[in-house]
Structures are given as C-alpha cells and as structure tokens.
C-alpha cells in the first residue's frame, strides 16, 4: 500500500482489496499454501486476467473473492465492507447480489430450463415471478440465447451452456463477474465466441476477473496478474495508460 494507490482509489473506485490473503490446506502432516499472502486491488470496470501454472492458487483466489470459500488468514474488503467475520447468510447475500460466478464446468441445474437456471439468483433475491422472468429473458438475450429459454442444459451445446451460465452470473447485476477458466471445456472457435461476450460486457461497464491459461485470451485483458505457488509473481498492467485516463 502506498500513497499513490490511495490517490487512484479516490479517482477510480476500488471494489476489491485484499491484504495478505492466505489459504492453507492441511493434507495429513503437510500444510499446503494454496494462497500464501496475496495483496491486490481491483477497480471498477477493470478487466483482469489471472494466469499461472496449474496448482498456483488461481481457483483458490477466485473462490475467496467470490465468497464461496473463506480465507485462513488475511483481509478481504469488498465494496468497502470487510468480508471476514460475516456469517453464512451475509455471505450468501453477497454471492447473490455482488458476485456473478462463471465456472469451467458451467454448473447449471441439469433438470432445469435455461430460463429457470438464469432465474435462480433472482429467486433467492426474492424478486417476484414476473419481474424475474423478464430479467432472466433479457439476460439470455444479452448472450444471444433469446430463442433457447426452454432448453435444458443437455439440449444445448457447450458454448450455449456457458452463455446460459454467463447470463445467470449477470442477471442480478453484480459488482463483479468472476470466471474461472470459462473456456477450459470449450473448443477454440467456441472459446472465441465466449471471449467476445466477455469483451462486450466489459465494454458496457462490467468489472471482470478471469482465470485463463491462454495467452491470446489474456492479451485482451487490461491487466494480467500471474500467480506462482500461492503468491503474486507479477502485475502486468499493460493498459496503465488507458486506466490512468479513465
């Protein structure tokens, strides 16, 4: 933390801030440092790619940021609110309102239609049925699936499933969209389509953090954070100039 960063905070709202974020796993007598103290800041409308070799802690970091998991140590401040110490229900609320999570394996309810899958976060937000359906339809339209609302996941292609998952992540208007290797299960052509969707979302103001292995994908991000052995190896803020101008 230095003065310069604070200045930027005021100019360009920080929505995620971590200090010494640590996650340990105990495997028998061995302690695995999945995250060994991560400090980072993410501002509104950033598009960040997280890279690093397998096992470097990328997913662990995403799960912590997404409030799916709780850190062993360290601080995590989301929209000015320290997340540690929140109870289960408050974390559920944050996952519901502030976070949109896109998984490598889609994680759709297999027996539910695309529309119902997208409605799910709205159901838990307590939004009335009519408004819910309208929002869910709009979200599906955003990812070009307006004509697939009643298809079940197994009636959709991989790319379509991931777009349903993106619609679900977006539908409650989250502060941040998290995607952990969203194209990991897709062929390169479909990956390309999905990346376009993310770019459009970013262009319309969405903050995005994405884990990816592929350099050509990471190149589209404004900033690449590389993890190694649970630590940040480098911040490659190649779009610094652009960000300073925002």
């Amino acid at each position: 933390m230095n003065g310069e960063q604070r200045m930027q905070t005021n100019a360009n709202e920080v929505i995620i801030e971590t200090h010494g974020l640590t996650k340990l796993y105990q495997m028998g007598s061995e302690t695995i440092h999945a995250l060994a103290g991560v400090d980072m800041q993410i501002r509104r409308n950033e598009y960040i790619a997280i890279m690093g070799p397998s096992g470097s802690g990328k997913s662990t970091l995403m799960n912590l940021i997404g409030c799916l998991d709780t850190p062993t140590d360290g601080e995590y401040i989301l929209n000015g609110t320290p997340v540690q110490g929140l109870d289960d229900d408050e974390l559920a609320r944050i996952r519901n309102r502030e976070i949109g999570f896109v998984f490598q394996t889609f994680n759709l309810l297999p027996r539910a239609s695309a529309l119902h899958n997208v409605e799910l976060p709205l159901i838990y937000a307590g939004i009335p049925a009519k408004e819910r359906q309208e929002k869910a339809r709009n979200a599906l339209a955003t990812v070009d699936l307006a004509d697939r609302t009643h298809h079940k996941p197994n009636e959709l292609s991989g790319g379509q499933r991931q777009r349903v998952a993106i619609a679900r992540a977006l539908v409650n208007d989250p502060s941040i969209l998290l995607a952990d290797e969203p194209t990991g299960n897709l062929d390169s052509k479909t990956s390309e389509e999905i990346m376009k969707v993310f770019e459009e979302l970013h262009a319309s103001g969405q903050t995005i953090i994405m884990v990816t292995h592929e350099h050509d994908i990471s190149e589209r991000a404004q900033r690449v954070v590389t993890l190694r052995d649970g630590l940040i190896e480098s911040h490659d803020a190649k779009a610094d100039g652009l960000m300073a101008g925002v």
Binding site: L68, D88, A92, R95, N96, L108, L109, Y124, R168
Partner: peptide, 12 residues
C-alpha cells in the same frame, strides 16, 4: 452447491 453459489441461504 450451485444454489448456494448463486445466493441460497441455509434456510432457503
């Protein structure tokens, strides 16, 4: 897990 990930609380 999916339901909890998108915001279901325990009581839900």
């Amino acid at each position: 897990g999916i339901r909890k990930a998108v915001g279901a609380r325990r009581r839900d």
